[in-house]
Amino acid sequence: MSQSDFALWVYLSRTPLLWLTLTIFVYVLADRISAKLHRNPLANPVLHSVWVIGLILSFTHTPYRTYFEGAQFVHFMLGPATVALAVPLYAHRRTVMRVLLPMAGALVAGAIAAMVSAVLIAKALGVPHDVLISLAPKSVTVGVAMGIAERTGGDPSLAAVLVLMTGAIGAIIVTPLMNAVRVRDMRARGFALGVAAHGIGTARAFQVDVMAGTFSGIGMGLNGLLTPILVPVFLPLLLS
């Protein structure tokens, strides 16, 4: 790089514009590839965008803080998008009202199964106690999980990592798993996904089927209410 090229790079790499643009284009590319591959679960656009951008940041020695100054505009849209969930919920309100009981049951079953199985498996494999605490809220949305981890003596950053990994895993395994057990009911599939794998699962559900996305959004929202109550009750039992 010549002196002036370098000066241009230094200037651009410090403006939010570069990282915002990069985030959008990497995502568009990942999403196009995912659509071309008929939404194959392994072509998950979040997963692939994240590692591509991560590599670019590490090659260019860009600190995350600089990247986030640009990417925050995209991150910010999570709030309005959550509010927007009211629209499909309203459109499908009659379908939703008919399955209130199945949703309540699936919420309790999914939330408890996620927390208990994660903590017990990790414990059996020798994962230390302080990590188990941060593992318990892994199925709820990042902000809520970090709050739970903080209150129960866990590590909020570790909880955030575990939550996002869980979301990606759920988004990838849901389609083959549901096809294997022959569940074709998009209400059940979507709802269970939202409970187990929060927003990243819901994002996947909306790309596959609007009905699944709607139910996933409800599952995610309800689990955001239930898991903060469950963790302090179950955690002492699971850790003893």
Binding site: P102, V108, A109, V127, F191, A192, L193, A197
Partner: peptide, 24 residues
């Protein structure tokens, strides 16, 4: 941790759909 995350997510998904279908 990866094993715990993968297995528990699968267990949660299966528990969720099973109960949903049963009650439906």
């Amino acid at each position: 941790i990866l094993v715990a995350l993968i297995v528990s997510t699968a267990v949660a998904l299966l528990a969720g759909v099973a109960v949903f279908r049963l009650l439906a």
